[in-house]
Each structure stands twice: as structure tokens, then as C-alpha cells.
Simulated scan of single mutants.
Amino acid sequence: MSTSALLPFISQAFDQMPFNRLLGLHVSHFSSEKVEVSFAWSDTLVGNPLQHILHGGVISSVLDTAGGIMAVSSALGRLTDVEPAELAARLGKMSTIDIRTDYLRPGRGESFVASAQVIRSGNKVAVCRMELHNELGVHIAVGTGTYLVG
């Protein structure tokens, strides 16, 4: 399935998740090589009110979301001639197996972009590398995620 055909399908599933809406996430870039998920600063995302930085759970969740979208798109992108109902059934079975987040700097900024790329995609499992940067390009965190995709 082509990337352009996958985008509406994955976007619909992404937009239906209340947690993604709570964080203010939106897919800002989508290709077969890379996914970017963006969000703006919000006082509701503060982890340390004295330093005015993002909560670590927000950072990890955003990295997981970007990696999950990339893993799903890599797995579904290999499928051809599949009906939307089967795609939906497959999507419902995909999940995070493991995620590691390394916090490099405090999460300061006005807007943020999490990017993800596939390291390996097999029949059952995909592994992605994720990064989070602020609007100035400051590298805030990196992550590696393992996803059940088959």
C-alpha cells in the first residue's frame, strides 16, 4: 500500500485517540522514511513547575506515538490489495512491546517535534529510533521502541 493511501487511514486512527488530543499532537510529516509528530507548549504538560519544563511522561509518550506511527506504516505499507476492514483489524492488534527513553536536556521550548525512523521491520516486530527537538533544534530526548506489528 502506498504512503499516500496509508496517511488518511493512520491519521483517522491517530485522531481518535483522546490522549493524543489531550497532548495536542498532530502528524506534521509522513513518508515511508520518516514520521514527525508536533505539539505546542502547554502549561498542562509541565513536569517541573519551578523549572517550567515538560513532564518526562509526556516526552516518552510523544516518542512512543511517533515510533508507533512509523512502525504501523512500515508494516501496513508492505500489504497490497488489502481491504480497509482487514487494515483496521491489523491496526487493532499492533502495540508497543518496549520503549527506552533517554532524556538529554530539559524539555524547554514553545513547540516540539518528535521524529521516528524504522531501524528494522519484520513480519511480527518493528524497531524504531525516535528523537524529540524543540523549535530551536535543541535535542531533548532520544528513544528506541519495539512494536508488535504482525
Rank of each mutant, 00 (worst) to 15 (best):
W41G: 08
V72K: 13
S74F: 00
G109F: 09
V72H: 05
I53E: 00
A85Y: 00
I99W: 07
V35W: 03
D81L: 11
R108S: 13
K93M: 12
S73Y: 02
G68Q: 05
D98G: 12
G107E: 06
G57T: 01
W41M: 11
G67P: 07
T80P: 03
K34D: 03
V46S: 00
G56V: 05
I59H: 09
R100E: 10
G92P: 06
P84L: 11
D98V: 01
K34P: 01
T101C: 14
L50A: 13
I53G: 04
M94C: 08
E36S: 15
G57I: 02
T96A: 14
E33S: 14
A89Y: 04
V35F: 02
V82E: 11
K34M: 15
V82I: 15
D98Y: 13
L45V: 09
W41H: 12
A85N: 11
T101E: 09
G92C: 08
E33T: 09
L76K: 08
H52D: 11
T96K: 07
E33R: 13
S42Q: 13
L45W: 05
E36A: 15
G77T: 06
A40T: 10
V37F: 09
D102N: 13
K34E: 15
V72D: 00
D81P: 07
A88W: 02
G77M: 10
F39I: 05
L63H: 05
A71N: 06
S31A: 12
E36G: 08
A85K: 14
F30S: 10
E83I: 12
D102G: 08
S60E: 01
T44H: 14
L54E: 02
D43V: 00
S42K: 13
E86C: 03
L79D: 04
T44G: 11
M94V: 00
A88R: 15
E33G: 08
D98H: 15
R108Q: 15
G109A: 08
T65R: 03
R108G: 03
G68Y: 07
P49G: 04
